[in-house]
């Protein structure tokens, strides 16, 4: 056993790399679900974002443009889900699953010419002064911009949901779309906006996966990250800061167990690998036993103005 070979600074950086994609996707999906829509297409939107982000970054040489394009592409893709479920009133579960399948297929198609190419690296941002603090500086204040953006996004989502009128309307639509409709709010429009936002976030998460974590395009690259994001929303009982905790817990445990193995620490590997899932199940049991699960009351229900 030799724990000294694990460098905490590098470990934290790896955890950031691992947690940020699922954090981005999960915070977006949380907003979607807060509006009462269950979009199971996160995996499909993520991988679409991954391939579009990678392709644009390779072609333009700018990872920044890659992220913007990824967000737009996935947001547009999510609108197809929005139109099907909000306008044509299709079943949300089935449509969401369909969106995942479309995303996986579409990305494989778009990605073919990009197999084996190298992406431009995402620059690290050293925050002046703060990043000069020994140990803490490189640990917390010298990551790439997307890490900070994802944290900012969590804070912004929390603030908007809690303090603003827009947040109130979004939550009202998610809790009781009939009441919100009776009050004159445009339920479908609010939900479309939420779906668009969720799509953009999933796209960013996917692009981060491709440009910062895996550094290449490989078919099927997300390998279930979208489903983990969905689980984290439930784990977090639809609260932004808990989404942050969930994503970092998940990313942290998965990276930590790899590092423990690399340092020859005798850990029951299989147990550690499944611990994030075990914790999620445990939390689900606890919140259902308490009876207050925190899910928006209209989650997954179809809204029709005449109804």
């Amino acid at each position: 056993m030799d724990l000294s070979s694990i460098n905490p600074v590098l470990l934290i950086a790896s955890i950031m790399l691992s947690a940020t994609p699922i954090l981005l996707a999960a915070i977006g999906e949380m907003v979607v679900e807060k509006s009462g829509v269950l979009n199971l297409g996160v995996e499909g939107m993520m991988i679409t974002g991954a391939v579009v982000g990678f392709a644009i970054a390779v072609n333009t040489g700018s990872p920044g443009l890659g992220f913007v394009a990824a967000a737009m592409a996935s947001a547009v893709l999510s609108l197809s889900f929005g139109i099907l479920t909000q306008v044509l009133l299709a079943n949300q579960v089935a449509t969401g699953l369909g969106l995942t399948l479309v995303g996986l297929g579409l990305s494989a198609l778009i990605g073919t010419p990009y197999v084996g190419l190298k992406s431009p690296s995402v620059p690290k941002v050293e925050i002046p002064l703060l990043s000069d603090i020994p140990v803490l500086g490189p640990m917390l204040f010298s990551h790439d911009l997307m890490v900070y953006f994802s944290l900012f996004l969590v804070a912004a989502v929390w603030a908007v949901l809690k303090f603003t009128r827009i947040g109130l309307i979004l939550r009202a639509v998610g809790e009781s779309h009939d009441a919100a409709h009776a009050l004159g709010y445009k339920v479908v429009r609010v939900r479309m906006a939420a779906i668009f936002f969720g799509g953009a976030c999933a796209g960013l998460g996917g692009a981060y996966l491709g440009l910062a974590r895996v550094l290449q395009w490989t078919e099927g690259m997300t390998a279930g990250a979208g489903w983990i994001a969905l689980a984290i929303v439930v784990f977090a009982s639809w609260r932004p800061w808990r989404v942050l905790i969930g994503a970092y817990l998940f990313g942290g445990v998965s990276v930590l167990q790899l590092n423990l193995q690399a340092a020859d620490v005798a850990v029951p590997v299989a147990l550690l690998s499944m611990s994030p899932y075990l914790i999620t199940i445990l939390v689900l049991i606890i919140i259902s036993a308490r009876g207050a699960h925190g899910a928006p009351a209209s989650l997954g229900r179809i809204f029709h103005a005449s109804g």
Partner: peptide, 22 residues
Amino acid sequence: IWAYTWFDPAKEADAARALIEN
């Protein structure tokens, strides 16, 4: 490192990084 997967690019990349860092 036992990854317990045949194919998961993100995890494989994390594992490679962990080994290199060690």
